[in-house]
């Protein structure tokens, strides 16, 4: 376990960024669940190396937005381009994008019938076409990185929530994605396990991973975010640098939201 506080508290300016390529581009995205308009004219451009933290009241469309980026959700209007590939009905484009975009879920969603190692090696073998040996080597590497190499032979149910979520992160990393999506990764965890998961994410951020994170962990957001996004009622209300966002929010809703969440 890494408990070195100085490392976890490293300031954002040390973080490497390469800000010339577009990683995700959403243009005028609209989505309806039946008659309910969940995403309303969403425009968001994420550069490579960006770390976007999306916050806002629940039901505001944060998760839905995230899930459009690997097309786990479909939308009815607008364009989403990920890593230069436009997501369309065409399964080829979807497969191509999903190979390069990792996702971590609130409920971990590990495969309970597979060991930790098998969870991690599954996609490299069956999506990337690696040999089992190669895939397991990669799995061991990333389990090492999330600091649970000794749990490789266990089943998910034998692990704590924090460990499961770290396995989920390792599983996503095993595909060596260019972009990582985190959908409230710490919301389902007991309070004492939040830190170990956030530490893992901070390290990932330090390595320059492009990240989009739906989270209410404002400490984490301050530490790693390059930009903050506030969503409410299916719309992006405010996008800003974290310094500005937290100290001097411009929109009324941002102010109201922050005043409730930062006690």
């Amino acid at each position: 376990m890494d408990n070195d506080p100085s490392k976890a508290a490293a300031p954002a300016r040390d973080i490497r960024t390469t800000r010339n390529e577009i990683a995700v581009d959403m243009e005028g995205v609209n989505k309806w669940y039946g008659a309910f308009h969940v995403l309303r004219d969403v425009n968001l451009r994420v550069m490579r190396g960006d770390r976007i933290v999306i916050c806002g009241p629940s039901g505001g469309g944060k998760s839905t937005l995230l899930r459009c980026i690997n097309r786990i959700e479909e939308w009815q209007q607008g364009r989403v381009v990920v890593d230069g590939v436009e997501l369309t009905e065409d399964l080829k484009s979807i497969d191509e994008v999903r190979r390069e975009v990792g996702m971590v879920f609130q409920q971990f969603n590990l495969f309970p019938h597979l060991t930790v190692l098998e969870n991690c090696a599954l996609a490299p073998v069956w999506v990337r076409g690696m040999s089992r040996k190669e895939a397991e080597a990669i799995a061991h590497h990333y389990l090492e990185r999330v600091r649970i190499p000794e749990q490789a032979a266990k089943y998910p149910a034998q692990l704590s929530g924090g460990q499961q979520q770290r396995v989920a992160i390792a599983r996503a990393l095993c595909m060596q994605p260019k972009i990582m999506l985190f959908d409230e990764p710490t919301s389902a965890l007991d309070p004492e396990m939040v830190k170990e998961v956030l530490d893992t994410m901070v390290e990932l951020a330090m390595d320059g991973m492009t990240m989009l994170v739906v989270s209410h962990e404002m400490g984490f957001a301050r530490q790693v975010a390059t930009r903050m996004v506030l969503m409410d009622a299916g719309q992006i209300i405010e996008v800003d640098e974290p310094g500005q966002f937290f100290t001097n929010p411009r929109h009324e809703r941002t102010k109201a939201f922050l005043s409730q969440i930062l006690h």
Binding site: D95, R98, V101, G102, Q107, N109, L122, V127, A168, A172
Partner: peptide
């Protein structure tokens, strides 16, 4: 659970896999 399908799809597994 739906999450199992979503996790599998997010990893890039096609329908049959």
């Amino acid at each position: 659970p739906r999450g199992q399908y979503e996790a599998a799809r997010a990893l890039g597994l096609g329908y049959w896999k």
